[in-house]
Design a binder for these strands. Structure first.
Length: 312
DNA sequence: AACCGAAACAACCGCCCCGTT
DNA sequence: AAACGGGGCGGTTGTTTCGGT
């Protein structure tokens, strides 16, 4: 017997009309019964696809188009160290951010670090360093140290690429570019608890491993400051790193005391107007209009969404 | 202006959990 | 108790945008 011809399932980018249908459905029934959207013939999308679209793009109060602030970055780093890759959980601490946002942010960050450290490795291991390109361009990003090994693995880099031969103390060397130092400083600034928290980046990082790293910071610091290639912020941070009591400033080693207070898990209040963010786009004439239609929602329709009584 | 690499973003896939039958 | 389906989540991949050469 010929199986009933399945209705074609649509994939790929969503159109405005589809969004509208989805929003109308949620407007009427709430954010549930995703599979019924297809069974009713409203959309040729799977329930999962509908849910994902709603959660990541159409939900009110999303910070679409906003870069992560320094505070958000720090929160992600801290929570990732604590929870691991529990993006949905981490996202509950970041108003307007989705698990996908957090995941993408982290992924980009890891790739960037991998590239930087890889280039650093090249520079430090080469006896005859070639002139570096302007922006450290390089494909075949290769992580070079065990420091971030498990994190790299979780982002699909093969195990043999993670060589144990390079120590974290080589992350920064006298050959490090100012880009590398800047990023490493940023890392130390944002991931400030690395020195004290074994869970950081999912590795068994211990203080003994990071101390040489920091001394290398100081070496690079001197060079870079001498060459006047840092921003004033970086120079300020470098000055602090040069301070022998810097670690004390960060907090006592081994202390479980948080260095800053994490925000509480966030639950979007139902009546808060949608967060509007301008796109980071350089086109200043282009105002963000994506969620204007959400203003038409009844005020109480999101009461059931993100119920504050629910645990994350 | 064209090209290229990196970063950012969007969406799908597969697995797992849980409630229902 | 087992089967099934829906939903949630993390991982991955494809596409677009951005910035530099």
């Amino acid at each position: 017997m010929e199986p009933a011809k399945k209705e074609e399932i649509k994939k790929g980018p969503w159109k405005a009309e589809e969004d509208e249908v989805l929003i109308n459905h949620v407007n009427r029934y709430g954010p549930r019964d995703w599979s019924s959207i297809r069974s009713k013939g409203l959309l040729q999308r799977t329930g999962k696809s509908c849910r994902l679209r709603w959660v990541n793009k159409l939900r009110p109060n999303l910070k679409n188009g906003c870069k992560f602030s320094a505070e958000e970055e720090r929160t992600v780093i801290e929570l990732q160290a604590e929870f691991g890759n529990k993006w949905a959980r981490i996202a509950t601490y970041l108003p307007g951010r989705t698990d996908n946002d957090v995941k993408n942010f982290w992924s980009s960050r890891i790739k960037r670090l991998a590239r930087i450290f890889h280039n650093s490795s090249d520079a430090s291991t080469s006896s005859n360093p070639k002139p570096s390109s302007h922006r450290n361009k390089g494909k075949n990003v290769k992580p070079i140290q065990s420091l971030f090994a498990s994190q790299f693995q979780s982002f699909g880099l093969v195990e043999e690429e993670i060589t144990a031969s390079t120590s974290s103390s080589k992350i920064l060397t006298n050959n490090s570019s100012s880009d590398q130092v800047d990023e490493a400083l940023r890392l130390s600034e944002l991931g400030i608890k690395l020195e004290h928290k074994p869970l950081a980046f999912g590795t068994d990082l211990v203080l003994a491993e990071t101390t040489p790293l920091m001394s290398e910071f100081q070496i690079a610091n001197q060079q870079a400051v001498n060459s006047n290639s840092f921003s004033s912020e970086s120079i300020d941070l470098l000055a602090r790193l040069d301070n022998p009591y810097y670690y004390d400033i960060l907090g006592p080693a081994g202390s479980s005391e948080p260095l800053f207070v994490l925000p509480q898990p966030f639950f979007e209040p139902s009546l808060v107007p949608p967060t509007r963010c301008r796109h980071v786009s350089k086109d200043d004439d282009e105002e963000e209009e994506a969620d204007v239609f959400l203003d038409d929602f009844p005020a109480d329709m999101f009461d059931q969404v993100d119920d504050p009584n629910q645990s994350p």
